[in-house]
């Protein structure tokens, strides 16, 4: 069970949070990009061995969404909460 640092509430147990998926590239402009680019954005999600940037929401707390960098092998949280 991870300890995740919420930017408002401080370090809390993983059970207080909801996982929001890894952060991939920003949403491309759907009015101009090709089908390939759009499908790639929708379906191909980062899944590295090692550091991944991911989103968490402090659902059973303040409700804030934030991002952290976590190592998928050691679960070390490499970089604490940031908004981008």
């Amino acid at each position: 069970m991870l300890i995740i640092e919420c930017p408002f509430c401080g370090p809390r147990n993983e059970t207080e949070f909801v996982y929001g998926g890894p952060k991939g590239p920003d949403r491309p402009d759907p009015t101009v990009v090709s089908d390939e680019v759009w499908l790639d954005y929708l379906l191909n999600v980062p899944n590295p061995v090692g550091a991944v940037q991911e989103r968490w929401r402090h659902a059973r707390g303040c409700g804030d969404w934030f991002m952290i960098w976590r190592n998928t092998v050691t679960h070390e949280i490499i970089e604490g909460p940031c908004d981008d």
């Binding site: 909801v18 920003d26 949403r27 929401r57 659902a59 409700g63 969404w65 908004d83």
Partner: peptide, 13 residues
């Protein structure tokens, strides 16, 4: 609720 907050906080801050 979660869906709306996610968009606002990440995509349209």
């Amino acid at each position: 609720n979660q869906h709306m907050e996610k968009i606002l906080q990440f995509d349209r801050p």
